[in-house]
Design a binder for these strands. Sequence first.
DNA 1: CATCCTTCCGAAAAGGTTTTCGAGAGGAAG
DNA 2: CTTCCTCTCGAAAACCTTTTCGGAAGGATG
Lengths: 334, 334
Amino acid sequence: MRDVAHLAGVSHQTVSRVVNDHPSVRSETRARVLAAMRALDYQPNVAARTLATNRSQTVGLVTFDTTLFGPSFMVHAIERAAREAGYFVSIASARELNVPSVSEAIRRLREQAVEGIITLAPVAAAWTALGRSLLDVPAHVPIVGMGIDVHAMPEVPMVAVDNAAGAGLATRHLIALGHRTVHHVAGPPEWPEARERLAGWQAALTDAGLPVPTPLPGDWSARSGYAAGRALAADPSVTAVFCGNDQMAIGVLRAMHETGRAVPGEVSIVGFDDMPEAPYLQPPLTTVRQDFAELGRRSMHLLVTQIAAGVRQTGQHRSAPDLVVRDSTSALAI
Amino acid sequence: MRDVAHLAGVSHQTVSRVVNDHPSVRSETRARVLAAMRALDYQPNVAARTLATNRSQTVGLVTFDTTLFGPSFMVHAIERAAREAGYFVSIASARELNVPSVSEAIRRLREQAVEGIITLAPVAAAWTALGRSLLDVPAHVPIVGMGIDVHAMPEVPMVAVDNAAGAGLATRHLIALGHRTVHHVAGPPEWPEARERLAGWQAALTDAGLPVPTPLPGDWSARSGYAAGRALAADPSVTAVFCGNDQMAIGVLRAMHETGRAVPGEVSIVGFDDMPEAPYLQPPLTTVRQDFAELGRRSMHLLVTQIAAGVRQTGQHRSAPDLVVRDSTSALAI
DNA sequence: CATCCTTCCGAAAAGGTTTTCGAGAGGAAG
DNA sequence: CTTCCTCTCGAAAACCTTTTCGGAAGGATG
């Protein structure tokens, strides 16, 4: 910077003014400085700027399993939104879904002086860690939770799809097709999304006056879906299954196929997420679509607002999911 | 830090020594300082440290499409390896696969003073941008390319699976099953991985003295695989297809199913990647497995070595892929 | 002509750490 | 007892910006 100032025949403060678009600098001087910057391939030093301004221009992302479709898509969407808002994004993954791992990830992020945190690792237990290591912090780092448990952490703003509504759409779709009940392959109970989808499914059945079968446990993976599918296939009374996500639905589809139960002839199946492969499964999967790009933008927007305001906000921001009907569901054959 | 020094009854330089594990500090003093740090919940300021040491402890990751299975898994693997090596990771995604986008992503990363860069956005054209904006840079930032074109950029070290060998495995597997030739659904030619797989497929056919059909273009997506699959299904002479990745294979499977061509009865299909869903497709997909976690560790290791040595290294590091035979391939029925 | 205001830019401090240099204390060797 | 060495720690400079304050130049006003 000193070199630039020297070359332009001004002092370094003026260079700083030019870099920061300060108004009071003659346009002719500005042009001279800009030329000098270009000539010397000047790169401002972020560390020095951060030190002086106390603003790192960085937001942190705590992730868990980015091989899941949802989170991996969100990383992308959030990075994009962050760039547009002028922020860098630094990621820290939790090794496991427990308190030490998550709080260690948050510690790393805070150590890096991020201005805000978005978390995609939604284990309920972890939030108590958050409560300890984040919310009580004097500098109270702004935070946004993607799909957190609003009951457990009402003071953390969250953005998520309306999981219960989505589950309701799926379940009522199956009921409307004449199914006497709908079975459910659930995501891990540590994930609020999984609990909300389960609750939505349960409510839709109860509202329709139908019996609520015991949900089958899954871990979001196709493998767990397959295991659940084998169990369901063994029960001839099963005619409709709502899966917590598309990947588990893939496993269920496979299990049905293996055991000779036709989809959708004998059994109808619905997923959740609408991953890009869903239309090309056998059969093309009826599923609940959520707009991940929109969720990413929204969470970033919420974070930026908090950073700008300097106060933590609260409240949930829910986006409405859509049901995408394809070929894996059909009316119950009497 | 000053507060900590005050509380411990030492000066701030001594605190710095304790933080950095400097040898010459009495163990009793060290204990006192550590206690003070804990008592005050002291967080060292990275910006100041970076300014003083000129080391940001951060590596940059340039990505393109993290919804693809490979890249999304790699992000995870690299973050993990980086944490173990004591680095933070900052991501920058290229908006599109062209020179301005990629060089803009790199510019953002350099602006952030990353100590090294790993790139997962492997468009050939982009590397000329790299040549301009990175390699010629005085500070010559260490870099590792995941799956770059070694012919175009021999001076950039790279780590990747041996794509040609993997394609050879897949193709020879199909040949050994008696197929007269093997068709290929290729990834986008901008990706070196796609070109290498295509070359490996071609070489295996030529070595076996078999005709080489025109490859069908794809873009890694199931949708493009479906389109290619429809074209292939229309040709009754097609009995074996090697797909550039698993997602396109899903599309091909769907197309075959729709047109009533049995897999593997009439047509055998092989994918590439071995995504977690591969065993649960219909039928379970024979595919080429690559060890993404290992690739992530290796690229990080290579980057750290370069940073430590202060010199750019060259050379390719190839890992050997495995063929995983499942149910989507079978001997040609005469 | 004197005074005041505006516009533009430089001087200097501040931000928190690392690092080099030097000094003091204590012990060992002559 | 003196000298020298080692161990431990403090003083001060350096890293590169931003920001506040003040000053100089020029024009407008009384």
